[in-house]
Nucleic acid binder design. Structure first.
Lengths: 201, 201
DNA sequence: CATCTATTTTAATGACTATCTAATTAGATT
DNA sequence: AATCTAATTAGATAGTCATTAAAATAGATG
């Protein structure tokens, strides 16, 4: 991650209205109008802020009829934070030879997500390479709620936000043990059970 | 950490010149003039940026003759980063009942450092309560280089940047096993040997 | 005390940005 | 096609902020 990105990331979070907006989204999906209401600003202002947050990859959006629904992009909210420190300490980290494994994995995850998702958060296609595929699948699965039962229809709808071929991806979720199915109900497996891509080569 | 603080923190990092300045400081102590040179700006501009970074507790400064030397405040650079995510996910974290221990300790550390250090990074006084005292001592010791031998004079000078009573603090460093002395040379103990305040009540 | 050096303050300029209103678009619904 | 809804764009305004030159300060040093 280079300087421009780090600056853009911090610019995106350097505004009280935008932080409040993200806090609202932490409670779940919200429409543009809802956000305008609760923030006490006009819809135009929400559009403005959404654009900034989108540029920094902090939110995703989906459209349903005339309404646009926003959600958090958990990955970048959590990991963008460490990026500045990474950049600042880059040279020192090199000489200090810490265990770079964790570092490299974080970078790989970031780069896979950048490369396989479009700017508006949709999945371009499922990676062929297993390691990368797992990163993508897990990234998607992370957007689902822990312990919540989903119908097959709900899962399909969810996946369709990201990619048209929901059937394949749903099957991959099961195959790779991210979810399990029990009498027509789908549920996330606990993360500890997810296949760890960190050790694959 | 509340909204204002988070916004201020991100504002401080939302500027390319300031990030570059911090990168320079990651290489070690630098004077104002040096920074102006290397950044290609006037001294006045450095003063301006230094003020912003100081407000966000990202740097410390010390004066020697007419020259002011800046250093990174490692603690806030590393931990300020997580603050935004903390704020955004606050409510969810409460319902999700994670192990708050780590969270609380981070908060405590932050609050102790805020309360016992002045805005310009000097130590007001050594806390009486052991847990807090250890936080302060460890925070100071973290500013020293690992594995580097220091003369007693150097240690005194170092401590004097933060507090006049260097003798007491130097003794506390030894007592609490943050450093050891061997034939007139002082050196940091590895952090794993530092007394852990996390488990004290 | 006069001077030199490194930093800060002040004031001005130009660029950016948060917000609004009003007009426009995109997509349903009738 | 006409209408309704939700969001976006365009343009305007007010505020913030990075930067500089010039003047002021603070502390050495001769």
């Amino acid at each position: 991650m280079q300087l421009d990105k780090v600056v853009a990331y911090h610019k995106a979070l350097a505004d009280a209205t935008r932080i409040k907006l993200l806090i609202l989204l932490a409670g779940g999906e919200r429409s543009g109008g809802e956000l305008a209401d609760k923030l006490g600003v006009t819809p135009a202002t929400v559009t403005h802020h959404a654009a900034k947050l989108r540029e920094a990859s902090l939110i995703n959006e989906r459209r349903d009829k005339n309404t646009i629904y926003f959600t958090l992009n958990h990955y970048f909210i959590k990991n963008g934070a460490a990026a500045a420190a990474d950049l600042i300490y880059r040279e020192r980290a090199a000489e200090g030879e810490e265990d770079n494994m964790e570092e490299n994995n974080k970078r790989l995850k970031e780069s896979v997500i950048r490369n396989f998702f479009t700017a508006d958060g949709r999945l371009k296609h499922v990676p062929v390479q297993l390691k990368k595929k797992l990163i993508v699948l897990q990234h998607l699965a992370e957007q689902l709620a822990k312990g919540k039962p989903y119908t097959e229809k709900e899962i399909n709808e969810f996946i369709k936000r990201y990619h048209d071929d929901f059937a394949t991806i749903r099957r991959e979720f099961i195959m790779h043990q991210l979810m399990f199915r029990e009498n027509d109900v789908y549920m996330l497996n606990p993360r500890e059970l997810w296949t760890s891509w960190e050790n694959l080569s």
